[in-house]
Amino acid sequence: MSAALYELKTAVGALLKGFAVTFRNLWRKPVTEHYPDAPVNFMPRYRGIHVLQRDENGLEKCVACFLCAAACPAQCIYIEAAENTAENRISAGERYARVYNIDYSRCIFCGYCVESCPTDAITHGHGFELATYDVTALLYRKEKLLEPWPPQKTSAPAPLA
């Protein structure tokens, strides 16, 4: 008899505990994202499609040091470097990336490229809509990755320091 009572007591206790959680969350703001009806709210360190940053003068921050390509475990970054000239200045250093491709069919969004970048040129943006019918469209060129200049209001937050 006492055993049955005990079981009843614990069962009711557990139920009440569970309902307490439900009840508490009834008054909280819901975490559900209403994508695609509403924009997605990302955590600031979300690792989305990369953004190549510019400095305050609009020059590209990337100096084509190839460290991101070296760090990349998926080997999805391809760079060709070239030298800046007085007439054609692209970056602040001597060298700039003439070609900068990221192959998003391979990228695993590990963030090593961002970690390794000595000039904070490559950052993770919050873009994530990569789906396409054509796999070749997943090869993003520099023009697509670069932060637009002059700056425009975008959903992408400022890079992390």
Binding site: A64, F66, A69, A81, E83
Partner: peptide, 9 residues
């Protein structure tokens, strides 16, 4: 060779 690439590439 200047500024063309990097040795490990």
């Amino acid at each position: 060779y200047r500024y063309k690439t990097r040795p490990w590439e």
